[in-house]
């Protein structure tokens, strides 16, 4: 009885661990999707209407699907009062570090670059940078989805193996 329970608990723990890791991967993809859609929105609004950043950020702070992105834009809006004392790119960078948990250096640097670019005066350059950054995150979403598929297969295999191992050893 004890052995069966032990085997069952080990099997359950491995399933939960695998599930937690898959969830983390899913959150990362959701964050990238939200960043990508925000960048596309910014590019459209700036290119078509030359909409001021404050107006775009206010919309994104209310309407973005991902909680982390909404908090990011809310923080930017709060910090915009310090413009003049600080450059916009610094405000953006601090908000990225504080609210968006981008673990990969390249992801962070790409998004830092957006803060530098949008504060420029050359409209085509601003839109070009936003386009490039949106494309970068589109590619990252694809990479993460592939990784997630591979990971799911691996986790499924490992979980089954672990469970079978536990059953064989304990029962």
């Amino acid at each position: 009885m004890l052995k069966t329970t032990g085997a069952g608990l080990i099997f359950l723990a491995s399933i939960l661990t695998a599930f937690q890791m898959l969830l983390e991967k899913r959150k990362k993809i959701a964050l990238f999707e939200s960043i990508q859609s925000s960048l596309s929105f910014l590019r459209r609004e700036i290119e078509e209407r030359m909409a001021p950043l404050s107006e775009c950020f206010a919309f994104l702070a209310e309407n973005e699907v991902c909680d982390a992105t909404r908090c990011f834009f809310r923080l930017i809006i709060e910090q915009m009062d310090t413009l003049g004392e600080r450059e916009f790119s610094k405000i953006w960078k601090e908000a990225v570090v504080c609210k968006l948990k981008l673990s990969d250096d390249r992801d962070r640097e790409t998004f830092f670059g957006v803060g530098q670019a949008v504060a420029g005066s050359d409209l085509p350059a601003v839109c070009g940078s936003l386009n490039a950054a949106a494309q970068y995150f589109t590619d990252r979403i694809r990479q993460e989805e592939e990784k997630q598929r591979d990971f799911r297969r691996m986790v499924f295999g490992v979980t089954l193996s672990l469970g079978a191992f536990a059953i064989i050893i304990l029962i």
């Binding site: 700036i46 909409a51 950043l53 450059e87 504060a119 005066s121």
Partner: peptide, 23 residues
């Protein structure tokens, strides 16, 4: 130059592109 950038960013809400026609 960064002081000038800060003034311009403050005046335009960091949206210098929106003032590009006027600039």
């Amino acid at each position: 130059e960064e002081d000038l950038q800060k003034v311009l960013q403050k005046a335009t809400g960091a949206s210098l592109y929106s003032a590009s026609q006027a600039i």
